[in-house]
């Protein structure tokens, strides 16, 4: 990967982390609130379906998690195993695409 692309990847990793930090907090607080309040799945769905807020929030969550997770996994694999280079880069992209596909499918079902 060129120095320029590597710099972009590094920036994407930092920015996605900044996005994820508050989103993870919102997610966890919401989960605890919903469970402790005794909401059923149907009740939760009735609140999230058609909601631009929840759709946007979890859409952003999926995007940031896919970017952050794939770049991080690429770094960890590159440092901890002999696997490096283009095939690892391609696998990281495939991982990101897979995460996004699954994530957006879930967001679609939620909203």
């Amino acid at each position: 990967m060129s120095a320029k692309t590597e710099t972009l990847v590094w920036l994407a990793q930092r920015i996605s982390a900044m996005v994820l930090a508050p989103l993870v907090l919102v997610h966890i607080v919401t989960v605890i609130y919903a469970i402790r309040g005794g909401l059923s799945a149907a009740e939760i769905l009735s609140r999230t379906q058609g909601s631009l807020f929840w759709g946007g929030l979890y859409g952003l969550f999926v995007l940031a998690a896919a970017i952050h997770g794939s770049i991080g996994a690429r770094t960890v694999i590159g440092e901890m195993t002999p696997w490096r280079g283009r095939s690892l880069d391609a696998a990281a992209v495939a991982f990101a695409v897979g995460l996004m596909a699954m994530g957006f499918r879930a967001v679609g079902a939620l909203t």
Binding site: A3, E6, W10
Partner: peptide, 11 residues
């Protein structure tokens, strides 16, 4: 900067 950018460098 160009010489040290990237995965083998500062990042």
């Amino acid at each position: 900067l160009l010489a040290v950018a990237g995965d083998a460098g500062c990042h």
